[in-house]
């Protein structure tokens, strides 16, 4: 039960994107299509999982003063592993995510979780935390990508969903579309939260 709570927290109450406002750069940049969004999400889950495990394993031996450079080295190692593997096995995805693969290193979610959670908790709860946060990130990313791809390109995951005479709204694929989508989505979630509170009391 406790574990379930730990997992769910990353998806809803502490969603890294919609609630904590962390890791925004890749969210906006790679949400042009659902395909990219899922690829990016999986890459982040992998890095978050591995770094949380290692950081949690060595948490008792790391001197507090130099913990940040050690965490950064660990994260950068896993990011490079993802980078190289993706270039070898999924070249298309690697090309379209481009710059944002190495930039996972500076994604605040990963260093943030290492510092705030994995450095203080057991391996097992760190794994749950990583999975929860990673899933929350992927869901947020996919949600934004869904709006952008359907409205901007008329497709979802490459499958045409809108009828052919629908003229795609180019703007949604371009940068302003990303800002509008995330702004409106956060606004909507705020409104939902507010509405729920009124009904509960």
């Amino acid at each position: 039960m406790q574990l379930m709570k730990e997992f769910i927290k990353g998806i809803i109450s502490e969603n890294p994107v919609f609630r904590l406002m962390l890791g925004l750069c890749p969210v906006l940049a790679t949400s042009t299509s659902v395909n990219n969004a899922i690829g990016m999400g999986l890459a982040v889950i992998f890095v978050l999982f591995c770094s949380n495990v290692i950081v949690s394993l060595i948490r008792n031996w790391v001197p507090a003063k130099i913990r940040i450079p050690i965490y950064i080295s660990i994260i950068a190692t896993f990011v490079t592993i993802v980078d190289l593997t993706m270039a070898g096995y999924f070249p298309e995805l690697h090309k379209s995510l481009g710059l944002f693969i190495p930039l996972i290193v500076v994604n605040c979610i990963i260093l943030g979780r290492a510092e705030a959670f994995a450095g203080k908790h057991s391996v097992f709860s760190s794994i749950i935390d990583a999975l929860g946060m990673g899933t929350g990130f992927t869901i947020a990313l996919t949600a934004i990508a869904t709006f952008r791809e359907i409205l901007g390109n008329g497709t979802w995951l490459g499958i045409p969903v809108l009828r052919t005479h629908f003229e795609p709204v180019l703007l949604m694929i371009l940068s302003p579309g990303a800002f509008f989508t995330i702004g409106l989505l956060i606004g909507f979630l705020n409104w939902l939260e507010h509405y729920r509170k009124i009904h509960h009391s």
Partner: peptide
């Protein structure tokens, strides 16, 4: 501290060299 950091980066580079040698032919 310097020694610890060096060890960490050495292990990291070693791991990466290994992964690189595995994926380089594929890339």
């Amino acid at each position: 501290y310097a020694l610890i950091l060096m060890t960490v980066t050495l292990i990291a580079s070693g791991a990466l060299a290994l992964v690189n040698s595995l994926t380089a032919p594929k890339i």
